[in-house]
Computed example of a mutant assay.
Amino acid sequence: MSEVKLATETRTEFGKGAARRVRRENKVPGVLYGHGTDPVHVTLPGHELLLALRTPNVLLALDIEGKTELAIPKAVQRDPLKGFLEHVDLLLVKRGEKVNVDIPVHTEGELAAGGNLLEHVLNALPVEAEATHIPEAVTVSVEGLEAGASVLAKDITLPKGVSLAVDEDAVVLQVLAAQAEEPTAEGAEAEGAETAEA
């Protein structure tokens, strides 16, 4: 996976007022932690970070005071209405280090005919992978699956060097039978009225 380089500044002001000032400058407050070190409060460029976060589990190369640190996003807070970034928690990682992350599950193919529904029991699959080789997603074929069928974690083919961080028998996807439409109360009343007239 590619690294995204971000110019990062440390910050010494905290609290809501300081965070608002940071955001007014189109920057995002964040905290960098991991490897038993004290958390470092940082400021990141807002637009560049927003673009980087479009890639799940993106690897960030943070340029902090002339030193480069690698990190992955662990928690991202967004404004619930406007969607802009409010805060980000970043986990320090090293090359070759294994980390636990959730990767998106994508599907391909068509279910068997019959109007059945595909339920994502797990939208993301917990895996352990090298910090610098985290897959962006896994793709699962649901071609021809019938009602009652399910896809377990162990059924999903993972890239080399990636292992499950969840019970191998955990259900990831399942096919639900199409439900027959029940007559609505209004429809039932109308039918009853027609019967009475007859």
Rank of each mutant, 00 (worst) to 15 (best):
S2L: 14
K5E: 05
K16Y: 02
G17N: 09
A18C: 05
R24A: 10
P29V: 00
L32P: 01
G34K: 06
T37E: 15
V40R: 04
V42Y: 01
V42T: 00
L44D: 02
P45G: 05
P45D: 02
G46F: 06
G46D: 02
L50D: 13
R54S: 03
N57L: 05
L60W: 02
A61Y: 03
K67A: 08
T68W: 09
E69C: 06
L70E: 08
L70R: 01
I72C: 06
R78M: 07
D79P: 00
L81V: 15
K82I: 14
K98A: 11
V99H: 09
L118Y: 04
A129Y: 01
E130K: 09
H133E: 13
P135S: 09
V142G: 07
E143A: 12
G144I: 04
L145V: 04
S150N: 12
S150T: 08
V151R: 06
K154V: 03
I156S: 04
T157Q: 15
T157W: 11
P159R: 10
S163W: 06
D167W: 10
D167F: 06
E168R: 15
D169E: 14
D169G: 11
V172G: 09
L173N: 01
L176V: 15
A180S: 13
E181W: 05
P183L: 06
E186F: 09
E189M: 12
A190G: 00
E194R: 07
